[in-house]
Write a protein that binds this DNA or RNA. Structure first.
Lengths: 116, 116
DNA sequence: ATCTACTACTCTGCATTACTGAGTACCACT
DNA sequence: AGTGGTACTCAGTAATGCAGAGTAGTAGAT
């Protein structure tokens, strides 16, 4: 993982995982695997599990233990009402940030065009 | 500042400041003020100054001391070749992240529409 | 002259978060 | 017994932003 990406994930990985769970309930190992498929190739399991415990403690998700055919029981997480609310807030914060960064990017772009 | 925004700024504030300086050279107090005007109303000075010292140490910016009419001399930062390269990398990482988050957002949106 | 206010930069300690790297446990197959 | 894949846990570390205080320079008010 590039250092840049690691730092950028701080504050966004939580939203990404909440959104993943919002799409459909999932357990840690599955979430980690899905993130890796999505291109976050170097996400470590420990990071995801720690995050899941965090959001569980904050009461954003409900947890259900489900036996697995191939290993220890799975902790299946699903977004509850508080989690949905929190995810909405995340989209808002994210939108605010992307708009400002996008604006900066375009200002630089325009400047470069004028410099030709 | 919301806790969400604080965490989200980790890893992105650096790019925001680099982009701000790329637009035109600037000094710390000015950058802080500009960020506040842009909507990052609760950015603290200490954060920006610490970040500037960091990117200076990494050799991403050049610094020039310029006397001020109204206070201590200003440290004017401008992006150098290495900084420009680094900023390009930032845009790449940022694009990767926004694409994936945007995709997640739309998948949830589509799901909600189907759920009607 | 000194007090206040604004400009401008610095510094220490803290909270949060992701990574590293190791460990535990359960099951299937050889 | 040993290997490999599934599934979760945990201690220690690095990086970053915030809180809050401090230092300094200039100008105008008291």
């Amino acid at each position: 993982m590039s250092k840049q990406m690691t730092e950028m994930l701080k504050g966004t990985l939580e939203g990404i995982v909440l959104a993943t769970v919002a799409l459909r309930p999932a357990y840690g190992y599955e979430i980690t695997a899905r993130l890796r498929e999505e291109g976050f190739s170097d996400i470590v399991e420990g990071t995801v599990y720690a995050l899941l415990i965090r959001i569980e403690k904050r009461g954003l998700v409900d947890v259900e233990k489900v036996p697995s055919e191939k290993g220890p029981p799975r902790k299946v997480y699903s977004l509850n009402a508080l989690g949905i609310e929190y995810l909405e807030e995340f989209w808002g914060t994210w939108k605010f940030l992307t708009e400002r960064i996008e604006r900066l990017h375009q200002e630089i772009d325009n400047q470069q065009k004028q410099g030709d």
